[in-house]
C-alpha cells in the first residue's frame, strides 16, 4: 500500500501541475476553457505495483452571454438647469468577451413627462462623472466596446427637460443593454458564435437587461416684495425734506429647486440720499464698502446684496434708509 501511494503522488503531481495555469475567474470559467479529466489507478499484482491512467476526457466550456444593468444614482437626480445626466453600470456577466447595444428609453409608463435623450456616453476617463468633451458620446447604433467577462462599464444617459414641465415633475429613463451576439430566452443557443468557434448560449438574464434611473424637476422662483416706512422729523409719517424712508426688500424663494447667484439690487430714488451704514441683511448690518460681506451701498450706485445660492422655501430681508433731500 505504501509503495503504491508513493508512485501515485509522483504521477498526480506531474499530471496536475499544468492545470493550475488556467486563470481562475471570479465567477464563471472563461469560455473556451478545456476541462480535462484523467483518473489514475495504482495497484499491486503478482510481482509488484503497477500504475495506469484512464483515457483523458476533454470538454470545452462554451460561451455564456449575459449582462447586468444597474442604476448608479441613489435617488432621483434633481434638475433645475434643463439638463440632467443619469449614470448606469453595464456589467458583462457572461464568461466570454461581448459587446452590448445600448438603448435609452425616456417614455416609461407613469412618467409626468418624457425627457429628451441627447445621447449616451461612456465614462472614458473612468471617474464616474460625466465630463463633456472628455467622455465619448456613442454614435448610432450605440454599442459598447467588447467587455471582458466581469468587466463593468459606466454609462451616462444625457437628458434635457422639455418646456412645459412643472416643479417636482418626475420621469424615469430606462437603459437597455443587449448582447450583440444575440438575445433570447435563457438557453437559446447561437451555434459557432462563441469563443474559438464554440457555441454561445443565452444566460439567465436573457443576454439583455434594463435598469431605471429617474430625474425630478426642481424649479425655484424668486418673488420680491418692497415696502417703505417713513418717519418725518416731527414724529409723523409725512414725506418732507429730512424725512427718513426705510425700505425693506423681501426675497421669497419658492419651489423645490435652488437659485444660484441671486443678487438683489436697488437704486437710491431721485431726490433722496442714502443714509450711510444703514444696509442690513436679515437684521444683521452690512458695511457699505465692496468687501468680504454680501452687501455694498452708495448714493450713486444704489445697494447690492449678493445672496449667492438660495434654496427653495427660504426668505431673506434687506433694509436700507434714505433721507429726503
Amino acid at each position: 500500500m505504501k509503495n503504491a501511494q508513493k508512485i501515485y503522488s509522483v504521477v498526480a503531481a506531474a499530471a496536475f501541475a499544468p492545470l493550475f495555469a488556467t486563470p481562475a475567474l471570479a465567477d464563471g470559467v472563461a469560455a473556451g476553457t478545456l476541462i480535462e479529466n484523467t483518473a489514475t489507478a495504482t495497484y499491486d499484482i503478482g510481482d509488484g505495483p503497477e500504475t495506469i491512467d484512464s483515457n483523458t476526457v476533454v470538454l470545452r466550456v462554451d460561451e455564456l452571454i449575459d449582462v447586468a444593468v444597474t442604476s448608479l444614482n441613489a435617488g432621483p437626480i434633481a434638475t433645475d438647469s434643463g439638463t440632467a445626466v443619469l449614470t448606469y453600470s453595464v456589467t458583462n456577466t457572461g464568461n466570454g468577451p461581448e459587446a452590448y447595444t445600448l438603448t435609452a428609453n425616456p417614455a416609461v409608463a407613469g412618467n409626468d413627462f418624457d425627457p429628451t435623450v441627447d445621447g449616451i456616453a461612456i465614462d472614458t476617463n473612468g471617474n464616474g462623472v460625466y465630463d463633456p468633451g472628455v467622455d465619448e458620446i456613442l454614435t448610432s447604433p450605440e454599442t459598447t466596446a467588447i467587455l471582458d467577462p466581469d468587466e463593468e462599464l459606466t454609462v451616462f444617459v444625457l437628458l434635457s427637460v422639455p418646456a412645459g414641465t412643472n416643479d417636482e415633475d418626475e420621469a424615469q429613463v430606462e437603459l437597455l443593454a443587449e448582447a450583440v451576439t444575440g438575445t433570447g430566452a435563457p438557453g437559446t443557443t447561437f451555434p459557432g458564435e462563441g469563443v474559438d468557434g464554440g457555441d454561445a448560449i443565452v444566460g439567465v438574464n436573457g443576454a439583455d437587461d434594463t435598469a431605471l434611473g429617474s430625474i425630478i424637476v426642481g424649479i425655484a422662483t424668486v418673488d420680491l416684495f418692497k415696502s417703505a416706512v417713513v418717519v418725518d422729523p416731527f414724529g409723523g409719517t409725512s414725506v418732507v425734506p429730512g424725512s427718513i424712508i426705510t425700505y425693506t426688500i423681501r426675497a421669497d424663494v419658492t419651489g423645490s429647486g435652488t437659485v444660484s447667484d441671486l443678487v438683489i439690487t436697488d437704486i437710491i430714488p431721485d431726490d433722496t440720499t442714502y443714509e450711510a451704514g444703514t444696509l442690513t441683511l436679515d437684521t444683521a448690518a452690512l458695511t457699505d464698502a465692496a468687501d468680504a460681506d454680501a452687501g455694498e451701498a452708495s448714493d450713486a450706485a444704489g445697494i447690492s446684496v449678493d445672496l449667492g445660492e438660495v434654496a427653495g422655501g427660504t426668505s431673506h430681508s434687506i433694509t436700507f434708509d434714505v433721507s429726503v433731500d
Binding site: 488556467t22 495497484y43 466550456v61
Partner: peptide, 17 residues
C-alpha cells in the same frame, strides 16, 4: 487472470470545476 490488490484510483479535479 491474477488478483489485484491495494487498488487505488485517484482523480485530480480540474481547476475549472
Amino acid at each position: 487472470a491474477d488478483l489485484v490488490e491495494n487498488f487505488v484510483v485517484t482523480n485530480p479535479l480540474h481547476s475549472a470545476v
